[in-house]
């Protein structure tokens, strides 16, 4: 009797709780594999002894090192001059090495990608529109594309020396190639029935290009940009290390190798990973969801799995 009553009672409160719990779970789901891996890391690192422990730091040691890397200069300055003003304290934060490394990578990479996107789009359009430029660029790009851009670093270093410009040239070059190819393919493969429809309404060539070819090839162009960014990221990080510059996340990682500073490397690697993730979220997803996804053009390309 009692059990049947309990069963018939409206379980509204419980249900609400369940709902809240399930939404939290949905948000946390992508995070939990990292927690598992970090836990395993922590347990393993705690087994390491002495010198071995230095080479295999625990998670809390890495987190502490991250804190130290960010705030170190500020606390050192405070120790020297306890009366330091708040503004100067914050200013000192800017001298932290990890921040300098990050900032250097953070402007060089998007800057190089931006150049590559502009030049790549122009070359791709020229190739798609004019047979002359197509026959000029296609053989060149086909030969250059399979060469890892990082392999050009020694030559570029000899020609343009050690410094930002070398890293920028390598990064931009690496990302320009796939972008030009994608824009070319996109322009060439626009659905011909759209062009006929525009022609039937007496649109001239330039208008058709502007109002049909460009939006029609946007899915290809965006996917080219995505590949371009990934290439830029890889080449840029490699070039930083090989071009022998001082500031940059991967330059920092290779420096840290000299001092066996594993914690620094882990921190810098995490920043690199986070960086790529944020670029994807901030740059591509908003553009895509406002254009090609909204227009239903991604299904046509068979890329629904991109929504994960």
């Amino acid at each position: 009797m009692q059990t049947s009553e309990a069963a018939s009672a409206p379980p509204s409160l419980d249900e609400k709780k369940k709902k809240v719990r399930s939404t939290i779970w949905v948000k946390l789901r992508p995070v939990y594999p990292f927690i598992v891996i970090l836990a395993i890391w922590q347990v393993a690192a705690m087994q390491a002894q002495g010198n071995q422990g230095r080479l295999f730091p625990t998670v809390d040691a890495i987190v502490y090192r991250a804190w130290e890397l960010v705030t170190g200069p500020m606390f050192r300055a405070l120790a020297e001059n306890p009366n330091l003003g708040l503004f100067d304290q914050i200013w000192k934060l800017g001298e932290s090495p990890i921040l300098l490394h990050t900032l250097n990578t953070a402007w060089r990479l998007p800057f190089s990608f931006f150049i590559a996107a502009i030049v790549g789009t122009i070359v791709g359009i020229l190739m798609g529109r004019f047979a002359f430029w197509e026959s000029f660029f296609v053989p060149l790009l086909s030969v250059l594309l399979p060469i890892p851009a990082i392999a050009w670093t020694p030559i570029v270093v000899i020609w343009s020396g050690i410094g930002d410009q070398t890293v920028i040239v390598i990064t931009a070059f690496a990302s320009f190639l796939p972008i030009a190819m994608a824009v070319w393919t996109g322009v060439k493969t626009v659905n011909p029935v759209w062009i006929r429809a525009a022609q039937s309404m007496n649109a001239d060539k330039m208008t058709i290009f502007r109002t049909v070819v460009l939006p029609g090839s946007l899915p290809m162009i965006l996917s080219g940009m995505r590949i371009g960014l990934a290439r830029a990221w890889r080449a840029g990080v490699g070039a930083e290390a090989f071009a022998g510059i001082r500031w940059g996340l991967s330059a920092g990682i290779f420096d840290a190798q000299e001092y066996l500073d594993i914690a620094f490397m882990m921190v810098a690697l995490s920043v690199l990973g986070l960086f790529g993730f944020v670029l994807e979220k901030v740059l591509f997803q908003p553009i895509e969801s406002r254009t090609v996804i909204r227009w239903g053009m991604m299904e046509a390309m068979g890329a629904q799995d991109k929504k994960v």
Partner: peptide
Amino acid sequence: FQEYALFPWRTARQNVEYGLEIR
């Protein structure tokens, strides 16, 4: 046309307006 020749990046109304824009 037999195939769907509407421009996917334009709404129904914007598609209908295309020829008028040209003119």
